[in-house]
Simulated scan of single mutants.
Amino acid sequence: MTRSCAQWFSTPVTAAMLRGWIELENTQYGIVPHRLPAWARRQWADPQLLMAEAQPSGVRICFRTEATAIELEALPTRRVYTGLPPRPDGTWDLVIDGRLVRQGTIPGGRVVRIDPSTWSTGTAPWAEVEEGRPGLLRFADLPAGSKEVEIWLPHDEAAELFTLRGNAALDACGHSGRTTWLHHGSSISHGSNARHPTGIWPAVVARLAGVDLLNLGFGGSALLDPFVARTIRDQQADFISLKLGINVVNMDLMRLRGFGPAVHGFLDTIRDGHKTTPLMVLSPILCPIHEDTPGPSLPVFSDGQLKFQAAGMDEDAAKGKLTLRIIRDVLKDIVTQRRISDPNIHYLDGRVLYGGADHARLPLPDGLHPDGATHALMGERFAAAAFGEGRPFA
């Protein structure tokens, strides 16, 4: 982009300009949005969780301006996995007055090289970091006149935010006046395999329902951690949804005896801060490899592609190991029991969002995660099931 001689306005990215975050980390030159507070990150410094919560899924910069040209200086953090093709650069979505109008990437940045064979265990050395330089995201030839601008950060790439510039003044939007929907879930809620940040299914819901999204979907880390429940308890939210179960199977983390009480404890903690807030528990979407076969899920690398397979044995379910069918039954029973004294808790079978007929038409590319078209479908269906007329979040 070639600048004209017109005056340019510059401002650091501030808390007042950001939405969808839990805590901001101040660095030497800018800020890093986090989706878990520092005290929670310290309680269990799992590398997968720390990577996931620092990826700003659902976080966006919001300001009003008459600028027709905008640039953002930021330092992205890219991931490179040993043995796999390079990942595409993270996509930044430009939304003007609620409509996606442009997309861009930031060149350069920091690189984290990850060895998948040691990553999941946290065994050192699981990653090497190569420092890099900040880059510029540029958008030119924008519509004239006053407008609300949102820049949605990449859902799957961490970023340190420095300076925002434009050829007109840039004013923080302030409070939107919309209700807040807090959603917690796994990598699917985080946005795995979605093409861009406003294409993840929770962002699709937020647009259709006209709500502000606080997305606490953490890839590989929806594990009923008590510190996540306390984080949710302490946030302002008008609606809360929890998509639970798939990561517990992925990691073969619990048996049936532990899972039920852990779900109750997670809900009890949230209810300590949200006694009557409408709360929906979602069970897992259809995932054929784990419907009747327990975990763990193991990655399989073939022809440069990553896929997952179930490593458990079907007969182990009789010994208390968890499958998705068992988890759905447990979650439904728990919500049914709690509704006796808590009429504001609700259950939704995840197969309403993605079921057998959908799998025949839109199979999960890697065996676990939906593609971009399926994210859109799931968003449309959840918006109708939760926020539609007469529905729990209406």
Rank of each mutant, 00 (worst) to 15 (best):
S146H: 08
W126M: 10
L137M: 10
A144R: 14
L136G: 03
P143M: 01
A140D: 15
K147T: 07
F139K: 09
P154F: 01
T123F: 00
T121K: 02
T163F: 04
E128Y: 06
D156R: 05
T121F: 02
A158E: 15
E148C: 10
A140M: 01
G122H: 11
D156S: 09
E157L: 03
W152R: 04
E130D: 12
L136M: 15
E128M: 06
A159E: 08
G132M: 03
H155G: 04
W152F: 09
T121I: 02
P143C: 03
A159M: 14
D156C: 02
R138G: 05
S120D: 13
T121P: 01
A158M: 13
L137T: 13
E160Y: 03
P154G: 07
S146K: 12
T163I: 14
P125V: 11
A158N: 03
E160T: 15
R133Y: 03
F139A: 13
L153N: 10
W152L: 06
G145H: 07
E130L: 14
L136K: 13
A124I: 12
V149Y: 00
P154S: 03
D156A: 09
P125C: 04
V149N: 04
E131F: 02
E157C: 15
G135M: 04
W126D: 06
W152V: 04
P134T: 05
S146Y: 00
D141G: 04
L161F: 06
L137H: 10
E131Y: 01
L142G: 11
L142H: 04
K147S: 07
L153S: 11
E130P: 00
L161I: 08
G135A: 05
G145S: 05
P143W: 00
T121V: 03
I151D: 09
L137D: 12
L137I: 12
A159G: 02
P134G: 08
E130Y: 01
R133Q: 15
G145E: 09
F139G: 13
L136V: 13
A127H: 11
A124M: 12
P134H: 09
A158T: 12
H155L: 03
L153Q: 12
G132V: 06
P134K: 07
K147H: 07
G145M: 05
F162Q: 07
W152C: 05
V129K: 05
G145Y: 03
H155D: 08
G135I: 01
A159R: 01
L161M: 06
W126V: 07
L142Y: 05
P134F: 03
E128S: 10
A124D: 15
I151A: 07
K147M: 04
A140L: 00
P134V: 06
F162M: 13
F139D: 10
P154M: 03
L161D: 12
E148Q: 15
P125R: 09
E131T: 10
P134R: 06
E148G: 01
